[in-house]
């Protein structure tokens, strides 16, 4: 059995979902209540590979909300993640993806040092961040977008916002190894981490968001922001492709301007219908087939019997691992999600 640990993107989103699922106690309650709410297994999942293999899993809602971080409720946020992990382990799930902010909280607040949760010692090999698969899929989406919109990567400027992060640094590595880029812009707040990345890559220009946006033909947005940013489309180039890999989304509203193409970053589409209910609440166009690449990673590991923390820690993703997860992704019938032609 595999597991997925998920959360919703905001308090209003969470209340709406709770209402639809028929949990009035949760639907009518404010952040205070969600800070005390325990994790729940809210869905059973069956996935069939194109190889014919079938696997089963469970969806754990952690009850974490991004507002907890924005409002300084760090203790509550950490509890949500640890308790959700303890629940997954108690259910005997062999490999569980830490979706969205779960892995970021685990890293940022060093939860690794708090592995004992009540009467359970967390076994980290049962968990994966799913970031390797996410990075791989975003790289594919970038290449597919270049083909679709007839833009030459060798002449293009690509900005990676969140470049020093776990996903961002893996994407930069992959791009440096497998593509010829016109220019690579490395964007984040902490300059030192960007310099280390630049030294490893032996390329890339360190740049602020404000300077990067007007220069970029492609913007890969993989920053960990607990709220989306409002973007003025007028500053962007024409054409400009934005791959928004954030969860919650890094861009606050839909960008409607001629020549700006926004792609749902880090999302995959499965070739066969997945049996589950939860995805219909996560704002995707085809919930039976579309899902986050990090969730798909735990499915891939389960298909392969690779019960190990495949993606773990920060900035440890290798080209070999990207390559392997890519092969498995194709083998089992996943492909990068692209907008309708």
């Amino acid at each position: 059995m595999f597991g997925l640990i998920g959360h919703l993107t905001s308090l209003t989103h969470a209340q709406r979902v709770a209402d639809k699922l028929g949990y009035p106690e949760y639907a009518d309650s404010d952040l205070e209540f969600w800070c005390m709410a325990p994790p729940q297994v809210v869905d059973e999942i069956t996935v069939t590979s194109i190889t014919g293999q079938k696997i089963h899993g469970q969806y754990v809602e952690s009850c974490f909300l991004p507002e907890m971080l924005a409002g300084g409720r760090v203790k509550a946020a950490c509890r949500k993640i640890l308790n959700a992990m303890a629940l997954a382990q108690r259910r005997g799930l062999s490999i569980t993806a830490l979706g969205g902010f779960s892995s970021i909280i685990f890293e940022n607040f060093r939860l690794d040092s708090l592995r004992r949760v009540r009467n359970i010692d967390l076994e980290v090999q049962r968990f994966t961040t799913g970031n390797t698969h996410t990075a791989y899929i975003i790289c594919q989406q970038l290449q597919l977008a270049a083909q679709r919109y007839v833009m030459d990567l060798a002449a293009a400027t690509v900005a990676v916002v969140g470049a020093s992060g776990d996903i961002g640094s893996a994407i930069c590595q992959w791009l440096a190894a497998h593509t010829q880029l016109g220019k690579l812009l490395l964007v984040a707040r902490d300059r030192q981490r960007l310099e280390e990345l630049q030294a490893n890559l032996k390329q890339g220009e360190i740049c602020s968001v404000e300077d990067a946006l007007p220069r970029a033909d492609f913007i890969v947005w993989v920053a960990s922001m607990n709220q989306g940013m409002v973007l003025n489309p007028q500053v962007l180039r024409d054409p400009c492709v934005i791959i928004d890999g954030g969860y919650p989304k890094n861009i606050a509203s839909s960008l409607q301007r001629q020549g700006v193409y926004v792609i749902d970053g880090g999302m995959v589409e499965h070739s066969l219908d997945i049996e589950w209910n939860i995805m219909q609440f996560l704002n995707v166009a085809n919930p039976a087939r579309q899902l986050f690449a990090c969730f798909a990673e735990s499915m891939l590991l389960e298909f392969e019997g690779l019960h190990t923390n495949f993606s773990w820690g920060r900035n440890l993703i290798t080209l070999e691992k990207l390559d392997l997860i890519g092969q498995l992704s194709r083998k089992h019938g996943f492909r990068p999600l692209m907008p309708e032609a």
Binding site: Y23, E25, Y26, D28, F33, M36, A37, P38
Partner: peptide
């Protein structure tokens, strides 16, 4: 059931 558990364990909390 999960639904019953969520209702029962939160009863009166709000």
């Amino acid at each position: 059931s999960t639904r019953e558990v969520m209702r029962l364990s939160a009863q009166g909390l709000r």
